[in-house]
Nucleic acid binder design. Structure first.
Length: 296
DNA sequence: CCCCAGGTAGGGT
DNA sequence: ACCCTACATGGG
C-alpha cells in the first residue's frame, strides 16, 4: 500500500487487491453513493469521504494522512492479506475460480455494529436501492449534521438514543412497511444486545466484538440471514455465511449442480465446513458474482 | 396485471 | 422436522 498527500484533505493511494467500487457495490454497506461522474461519497462514523478512481490510483478527498492511518485504513481492511484468502479458497474449492475472478478487489469493511444491526433488519425481503433510501432518510431526520470539505449536506447515522422514542406508526410513516414493529423491538433489545458485546470486549484482550447468532435471533425481525450479516459486517467474525437469494443461486449453480432442492441449513453447514474462517469472504465473492452475472 | 427484492414470523400438517 | 403464506413498498 502506497500513500502520498499532495494538498490538504486529499490523498492518493495504491493498494493491490482493493477495488473500492466493487466493495461499495457488494451489498455490505448502504451509505456509499455513486455520483454522476462515477465517484463515490460515503458517511462513516460521522466522517465524510469522497473516493475517485483515476489511472489505477485511488483519490481520497475529505481526510488527512493521519486520519487515514488512524481510521480509514482499518475501515477498508487494508492490512489483511486477501491474496492469501483467495489462495485458501481455491485450494478447498476450485469451483470458486469464476466468483473470485469477478469479485477480486472486494474488501469486507469494518463497520459500526449498531448501524449494521439496524440496516440489515431493514434489508429483509427488500431491495438494495430502497434499503439505501430508508437508511439515508433516517440519517437525515435523526442523525447529526456533519461539516466536511466534501461539498453537500451530510448526516451521521443516528445514535440509538435518537430513535428510541419512535413509535411503530412513526416508523411506518418512513415507508419501512411491516418492518416497523421489528425496528421498535430491535431498538428496545439493543441495550441487552450491546451489553453482551461490552462484556466480551472486557473479558477478551483483543478489540474483538462477538455476537452469537442465537442471541441475535431472539430479536423479532432477525432470522438466520440477517443475524449472520450482522455478525459478518458488524463484528470481526468471518466464519459465517449469510444465505440470501443470490448466494443460494450461486451455491446451487456451482456446488450442487443445479439441484434446486437444497435446504439453507445444508448450504450453511457445507459452506462452513469447506471455507472455515474464510466463509464470509467466500460468501461475498459468490454474492457479487451472482449479482453481476446471473440474470435470475 | 404480474414477479421480485441481501427474509421472517406465525400458522398449519 | 418440514411446507405454506402474509407481510409494505417500490421497481421492472
Amino acid at each position: 500500500m502506497q500513500i502520498r498527500s499532495m494538498e490538504t484533505d486529499q490523498i492518493f493511494m495504491n493498494a493491490p487487491h482493493f477495488d473500492p467500487v466493487k466493495s461499495f457495490e457488494c451489498g455490505q454497506c448502504f451509505r456509499w453513493h455513486q455520483q454522476d461522474d462515477g465517484s463515490y461519497t460515503g458517511v462513516v462514523s460521522g466522517k465524510v469521504l469522497h473516493v475517485r478512481i483515476k489511472d489505477n490510483t485511488i483519490l481520497l478527498l475529505g481526510t488527512s494522512e493521519q486520519e487515514f492511518h488512524e481510521f480509514w485504513a482499518h475501515y477498508f481492511d487494508l492490512c489483511r492479506d486477501y491474496a492469501a484468502i483467495q489462495g485458501r479458497l481455491l485450494t478447498v474449492a476450485p469451483w470458486m475460480k469464476p466468483a473470485i475472478t469477478s469479485g477480486d478487489g472486494i474488501h469486507i469493511f469494518c463497520q459500526n455494529l449498531w448501524e449494521v444491526y439496524i440496516s440489515f433488519i431493514i434489508s429483509s425481503n427488500n431491495n438494495i436501492s430502497r434499503i439505501s433510501g430508508i437508511v439515508e432518510t433516517i440519517s437525515r431526520l435523526f442523525g447529526e449534521k456533519i461539516s466536511s470539505p466534501v461539498p453537500g449536506e451530510w448526516y451521521s447515522f443516528p445514535q440509538p438514543e435518537a430513535m428510541e422514542g419512535l413509535s411503530e406508526q412513526e416508523w411506518r410513516d418512513l415507508n419501512v412497511g411491516y418492518r416497523a414493529s421489528f425496528l421498535v423491538d430491535a431498538i428496545q433489545s439493543w441495550h441487552s444486545c450491546s451489553q453482551e458485546v461490552d462484556e466480551i470486549l472486557l473479558t477478551k484482550r483483543k478489540q474483538a466484538a462477538y455476537l452469537s447468532s442465537c442471541s441475535l435471533q431472539k430479536v423479532s425481525g432477525i432470522g438466520p440471514k440477517v443475524a449472520s450479516c450482522i455478525q459478518l459486517f458488524g463484528t470481526d467474525q468471518r466464519n459465517v455465511f449469510p444465505i440470501d437469494v443470490w448466494v443460494r443461486r450461486a451455491m446451487i449453480h456451482f456446488y450442487y449442480q443445479q439441484n434446486r432442492k437444497v435446504r439453507d441449513e445444508t448450504i450453511q453447514q457445507d459452506a462452513l465446513m469447506l471455507f472455515g474462517h474464510d466463509a464470509g469472504f467466500a460468501q461475498q465473492y459468490l454474492f457479487y458474482h451472482a449479482r453481476t452475472h446471473f440474470t435470475k
